[in-house]
Nucleic acid binder design. Sequence first.
DNA 1: CAGGTATGAATGAATG
DNA 2: CATTCATTCATACCTG
Lengths: 166, 166
Amino acid sequence: MGTKCGRWNPTAEQVKVLTDLFRSGLRTPTTDQIQKISSHLSFYGNIESKNVFYWFQNHKARERQKRRRKVLVDEPINEERFQLCQDKNISSNKRFPEISYNEEPDQAERAIETLQLFPLNSLSEFSESEKLRFFAEEYRENMTFSCTIEAELDHPTLDLCLSFFS
Amino acid sequence: MGTKCGRWNPTAEQVKVLTDLFRSGLRTPTTDQIQKISSHLSFYGNIESKNVFYWFQNHKARERQKRRRKVLVDEPINEERFQLCQDKNISSNKRFPEISYNEEPDQAERAIETLQLFPLNSLSEFSESEKLRFFAEEYRENMTFSCTIEAELDHPTLDLCLSFFS
DNA sequence: CAGGTATGAATGAATG
DNA sequence: CATTCATTCATACCTG
């Protein structure tokens, strides 16, 4: 338990709902949506609207950051390894299963490979393309979002078919 | 060795380079810098960008912690202020209407208590002195950072003379 | 092996 | 939306 209670400590159920919403495409909930989500999640424990707000802010930002770094470092080096890394993803964190490391069979080999692919002076080229990187992920932003989350518990379903386009 | 690869385990060389960079004044590297550093350090072993990111975050934060603890020892009076400031956060957020479905019974009480101990003007004053206190150590933050690390090995030098202010 | 410490990792909460 | 800070969790490693 986070006992200190200085800050919000989401329960597993709360995280699940939030994650489901996120995976369903919700990124920047409106005030109304935040209210409803918060109200719904209060069933599972203490929560405030701002917690929901921050959660989405953080989750979106970190998803972006993660991708930013992956694309530049992992992907170009070796796509197969990257895939393997994703597939072998084992939750190392009880609360938020995240990416995990896969053991590189040969570190020295990879290092050499990396250096060959990315001599220092060629790295600067990526700075440019870095800026036009992720447009695709934003395409949902202004779309109507309609989703119903199954709570898997005896709590009423969270119906988010809100007046989204008013 | 922690061959488990459950989490990144920096090699001595990696730590040395990172520490040298830190000592040279680098505190919060940009994404580009993180990329370059990570790429460079991959020569010494497996590493990801986020490892570099976390390393600087942690190192800076813990440096701050140490300094703060030292100050607390020197001036015990400040300790109370620190504790109170950290434990009881004033809920005076304007962005969030504080709909609060689960109101903490003693929240109002604590808020009053906090206000009594720290009238607004004294709080801001403290905040300012805090900033001043640690200004010295961060003065490099926005300055141009230019440093060349000697790797002491047969690996090419890491040249971080980047376009810092673009 | 137990307990403590150092530190990697994560994330809530801001701020500009 | 990015960036940063504070705090906490998790784990490697050391020591007795």
